[in-house]
Simulated assay, not measured.
Amino acid sequence: MRQRSSDCLAELKYYSLVTPFRSIAIFYHVATLNSVSAAAQQLNVTPSAISQQIRVLEEQLGSTLVAKVGRKIKLTEAGERYYELISQQVEDIIRSTEMMRGNKTSTLLTIRATPTVSTKWILPRLPRFFDVNPQIDIRLDGSNEPTDFNRDLVDIEIRHGAGRWPGLHVEQLVEERFLPVCSPALASAHSLSATDILQHRLIHSVKAQIQWKSWFAHQGVTHDIPSKRLFFDRSHMVVDAAVLGMGIALESNLMMERELKDGRLVVAVANPPEMRIATQWIVCPYTHLRRTRVKRFIEWIKREAQIWYNEDRSLID
């Protein structure tokens, strides 16, 4: 047993001297996945081999890179700094190696968002993402279920809600404006008063954070429950029903961007109230922010959000 341990140690020292990239690459996978066991599974080696290579790298650098916190691991301050310094270079080497082997060079980014945000806002913009990130493949998961990042293989989520999710990185994507809209076949733009709207069927988005009751109260209009109502639990169905002339909807300008641009929907009242709220948030574990594909997506979607905001402001105002 001693001889075997001695042989393993000698082999480990050999690799650390001849091919230090082995230890660097293993550290990169551990830091990216935030797990020794996950890195071992991905690299098809044992967790003990992973730990050995981390120790070799720490000895070479003279710094502790990874610390145990209960059953989990956490990068030290030195580990975070080292990861920032090497991650781009390691990814470049991995891509170059795959190219030489004749394999497809790509990285999969899994995004979760509600079906409406996925289809009406993210999907039309993806060609621009691929223009600047051709090496990243996308899996777009349209779901209303919040991500369990400990279980689900999701890199980042655009989550609907109030923005209060402790323990996660949460960043506002956009501030939305809720507007009463309808098909121009039902009423021309800016032609109705708040009381006029009560004569039409009201389309309700039951999960929206601003409801018709609040909108009318903001306008100083008190009313009984209208006799004609239509309810949906998906914003894209609300938008589609309004386009079909089924009534007047109160919906976020984010969700009906294309319909407002091409004139299939118009704002029904003149000078609509400024009812703005942030309901869409960039959400992921803090450790995912170290992933290059996540960083690139966040940078890109924030630019897209700013472009959208500027275009939408000129369209509505």
Rank of each mutant, 00 (worst) to 15 (best):
C8E: 15
E11F: 04
Y14T: 04
S16L: 06
V18D: 14
F21I: 05
A31T: 06
A31G: 12
S35A: 09
V36N: 04
A38F: 07
A38D: 15
A39M: 11
A39G: 12
A40Y: 11
L43F: 11
V45L: 09
P47A: 09
S48V: 15
A49P: 12
I54H: 04
R55I: 06
Q60H: 14
L61C: 02
S63A: 13
L65F: 04
A67M: 13
V69G: 05
V69P: 03
V69H: 14
R71F: 05
I73T: 03
T76M: 14
E77A: 12
A78V: 06
Y82W: 09
E84H: 01
S87D: 13
V90I: 15
I93G: 01
S96D: 13
M99F: 15
G102W: 01
K104Y: 13
S106I: 09
T107L: 11
T107K: 10
L109F: 03
S118A: 13
T119G: 12
K120C: 03
K120E: 05
W121S: 06
L126K: 00
F130T: 01
D131I: 05
V132R: 09
N133K: 00
I138M: 07
R139Q: 08
L140A: 01
P146Y: 02
T147Q: 06
F149H: 10
D152S: 09
D152H: 02
L153M: 14
V154G: 13
R159A: 15
H160T: 10
R164Y: 12
P166F: 09
P166C: 08
L168Q: 06
H169F: 15
V170K: 08
E175A: 13
R177L: 11
R177Y: 07
F178I: 04
V181S: 03
P184W: 01
S188Y: 00
S188A: 11
A189F: 01
H190Q: 07
L192H: 10
S193G: 09
I197F: 03
Q199Y: 08
Q199A: 08
H200G: 12
I203M: 04
V206N: 13
I210K: 05
Q211S: 15
S214W: 10
S214N: 01
Q219Y: 10
T222L: 09
D224W: 12
I225V: 12
P226N: 08
S227H: 07
F231E: 15
F232Y: 15
D233W: 04
M237R: 12
D240Y: 01
L244F: 07
G247Y: 05
A249L: 02
S252Y: 10
M256T: 02
E259T: 13
K261Q: 15
K261W: 11
D262I: 00
R264W: 05
A270F: 02
P273E: 11
P273H: 03
I277H: 14
I282H: 05
V283E: 02
C284G: 10
P285Y: 02
P285F: 11
R293G: 08
I298L: 12
W300P: 11
E304Y: 08
Y309V: 04
D312Q: 13
S314I: 04
